[in-house]
Simulated scan of single mutants.
Amino acid sequence: MLKFRSFVVSIAALFVISALCFPSACNASESPVRLFLQESLDSEGKQVALNPKLMEILTYFERQTGLKFEPIILPWKRAQSETLEGKGIIYGFSRSPERLKAYHFSLPVVTERVWGITYGRPKPNYRHVEDLRNKIVSTGRGFSHGMEFDQARDVIFKVQEDSASTVARFKKLMAKRSDLMVWPVRGYQHHAEVEEYINRIIVKESNDPELKGRYFDVTDQPLFYDSTHFASAKGKYAEVLKKIDQAIARGTKNGSLNKVLRGYH
């Protein structure tokens, strides 16, 4: 009888230990959450490898939530439609009045300054949204750059949505087929830093002969501010978004989220 009682106690203890396991261990057997990410193409239309810093951020959220992500790279509009159909969640998504009707957004992960990039002399003096009246503004296809941007598009300025090829957008700017490109940047606060980054990293490392020796200007101040989020279709993945929100709130409070975001451009 004593042995039987000991056996029962041991089994009960195992259940208790299982119930108290760490989130990552508890969720190890759960299906991965499909996470849709924006594709980025080079000048030949080939997919550019994911930014290692982005992978570090996603690993941070896996560790903090106990979730396992299955990253899927898609054209941005398709990523949005797949999310809307409840096939997964999306990351790097901006809010807009229209999107708020259909998507459930996490807390902001990061706030971005949205700068304008121009080409040629004299350098235009774009400082406020009203300065963009009747201008052609180049964005990536399917992109929003925040609430103010969406309220002004096709009212104050005309939006030209381009492919995911950054090089193609620079060439359109050089050819005067657009007046400026909008470019979100997370890590830099001053336009001189952004300008150096654009010319020294983005343009130079494209290795495109048509961009060789070209220099692009950046507006003296951000034109818009935007926040990026995880998001799902309304009524879908509620528990996943709840865990992500908890991780964002906790990471913001203890500084760990800001630390992992440092250097993410």
Rank of each mutant, 00 (worst) to 15 (best):
L2F: 14
K3F: 10
F4Q: 11
R5K: 12
R5P: 00
A13R: 05
L14Q: 13
P23Q: 05
S24D: 13
S24G: 06
E30D: 15
P32F: 01
R34L: 04
L37H: 00
Q38C: 07
E39P: 05
L41I: 03
E44G: 11
K46I: 09
L50S: 12
L54F: 02
M55T: 07
E56I: 11
L58F: 02
L58Q: 13
Y60R: 11
F61P: 07
F61D: 13
T65G: 00
E70R: 08
K77S: 14
A79M: 01
S81E: 15
G86R: 14
G92I: 03
S94R: 09
S94V: 07
S96H: 09
S96Y: 05
P97Y: 06
F105W: 02
S106T: 10
T111A: 14
R113V: 05
Y119N: 03
G120H: 02
R121K: 11
P124Q: 07
P124W: 01
G140Q: 10
G142R: 05
M147L: 11
V155M: 09
K158F: 01
E161K: 01
E161T: 10
S163I: 07
T166Q: 07
V167F: 02
A168N: 11
K171C: 03
R177E: 15
S178Q: 06
S178F: 00
V182I: 15
W183F: 12
P184C: 14
H190A: 06
E193G: 12
E195L: 01
I198K: 03
R200A: 15
R200Q: 15
I202Y: 07
E205V: 03
L211A: 10
G213K: 11
R214T: 14
R214H: 12
V218Q: 09
P222M: 09
Y225D: 08
D226E: 14
S227C: 06
T228I: 10
F230Q: 07
F230I: 10
A233V: 05
K234A: 06
G235K: 10
Y237T: 09
A238G: 06
K242S: 10
K243M: 02
I244Q: 01
A247H: 05
R250I: 00
R250K: 12
G251Y: 00
T252L: 03
K253M: 09
S256I: 04
K259Y: 04
G263A: 04
